[in-house]
């Protein structure tokens, strides 16, 4: 209602700086990916699709991108199934273990990635089940760190769901399972999908855990870019980055359609 500018100028300026901090690095990646020269310099050389083309024939970045994508898909599937089932329990059960389980489920994201990576690596070598430096081993790690996001999103939409709608279905003669599947599930689907997208993105960009679990033949995109950054600033890495940026932007837009952003912020 009020239109007497409520935001002081100083605030607007600092807010602008904060936005720059967030967005400039991303823009530089995009610029580097479309740059025509070997290095991004000031002023830039010019535009070209040279590095994008390079990316599609790259022996490191293209396989790494595919690897990350596939791993993220598999991770998302497993953690969505496990996480959604667990969320139903967390919101519906009256068990006194509920709170403890809730805490257990957030733990993997509280634990620093390096610590979890080290713990898993040591465990794999110890148990000698063939998980060390293997795809299943990597998948397990990714499921651990993505499940909390699925649980948080799905739990939130289950809590918001008006139980009396399900009760109405029961009163009309539906069994508990029928009522849940036919009434509740369709209504919380946006929440589950948002959780799925979250999980995908977290897995796709996951670095520190992966560092301990991957091998040269199991390179994900973040690891490939990291390795490249340690030794040279290959513009092909930036070209790969452009695809990742596109992927993340689209999924954030999708998430914001699926769940009310405001609600997410209030609760997060």
């Amino acid at each position: 209602m009020s239109d007497v500018k409520p935001i002081p100028l100083t605030f607007r300026i600092i807010a602008g700086i904060a936005l720059l901090v967030l967005l400039v690095p991303v823009s530089i990646v995009v610029m580097a990916g479309f740059n025509s020269g070997e290095f991004l310099r000031f002023p830039p050389d010019g535009l070209s699709l040279r590095w994008i083309k390079e990316f599609f024939v790259s022996q490191t970045f293209l396989p790494a991108f595919k690897m990350s994508f596939g791993l993220a898909l598999a991770t998302t599937f497993v953690s969505t199934v496990l996480g959604t089932l667990a969320s139903v329990f967390l919101t519906r059960s009256t068990s006194r273990w509920r709170e403890m389980l809730r805490a257990l489920f957030i733990m993997p994201v509280i634990l620093p990635g390096v610590v979890l990576g080290l713990a898993l690596y040591v465990f794999y070598i110890w148990t000698d089940l063939g998980l060390a430096r293997s795809l299943p081993g990597l998948l397990i790690g990714h499921v651990l760190v993505t499940m909390p996001f699925v649980i948080a999103t799905v739990t939130a939409s289950l809590v918001d769901f008006d139980l009396s709608i399900e009760e109405a279905a029961r009163a009309l003669g539906a069994s508990p399972l029928q009522a849940f599947m036919k009434v509740t599930l369709p209504n919380i689907t946006p929440g589950i999908m948002a959780g799925t997208i979250f999980a995908f993105i977290v897995s796709f960009g996951q670095f520190e855990l992966t560092l301990f679990l991957s091998t040269p033949d199991l390179q994900t995109l973040p690891i490939a870019i990291y390795t490249s950054l340690r030794y040279a600033f290959e513009p092909t890495a930036a070209a790969a980055g452009i695809f990742a940026i596109f992927l993340v932007t689209v999924s954030t837009l999708l998430t914001s359609r699926l769940v009310n952003l405001k609600k997410l912020l209030r609760r997060h």
């Binding site: 690095p25 991303v26 530089i28 990646v29 580097a32 796709f204 960009g205 870019i225 990742a244």
Partner: peptide, 8 residues
């Protein structure tokens, strides 16, 4: 992805 931002 953090690594991509760090590239920038």
């Amino acid at each position: 992805d953090m690594v991509i931002r760090l590239y920038g």
